[in-house]
């Protein structure tokens, strides 16, 4: 466990309550990215969010991508960092790089 917040348990509770839930997991980091590998965020179609995958820089974009996996029902790897074209929209101000795996709970 990386911290005291039990995101998987929250995701499970939401799923059991009938919510559509997606999970985002930091799988790799470079440089000064704020959250280590293993950090998680859970989101629901209804707009609930728990946990984080950065210092708040990319959560919005990750949440949107995670929710899209609810339709595709397949996991997807996201790259964020200063070399990424999306850096203009949702970059990491710290200059770090991070990979985030998003997937639906099915």
């Amino acid at each position: 466990m990386n911290d005291s917040e039990n995101i998987l348990a929250i995701a499970q509770a939401w799923h059991e309550a009938g919510e559509h839930v997606a999970i985002a997991t930091v799988t790799q980091t470079w440089g000064s990215s704020p959250r280590p590998a293993g950090s998680r965020m859970a989101v629901t179609k209804s707009g609930k969010i728990a946990g984080s995958v950065s210092g708040g820089c990319i959560e919005g974009a990750v949440a949107n991508e995670a929710l899209e996996t609810l339709a595709s029902r397949a996991g997807k790897m996201l790259d964020f960092g200063i070399t990424d074209e999306r850096a203009w929209e949702v970059g990491l101000a710290c200059g770090g790089k991070v990979k985030v795996f998003v997937e639906p709970v099915i």
């Binding site: 466990m1 039990n6 998987l8 348990a9 995701a11 639906p104 709970v105 099915i106």
Partner: peptide, 14 residues
């Protein structure tokens, strides 16, 4: 993530 795997991870933790 399959619901069954999620449940197994939480059970291991408990």
């Amino acid at each position: 993530m399959k619901q069954s795997l999620l449940a197994a991870l939480i059970a291991a933790q408990a």
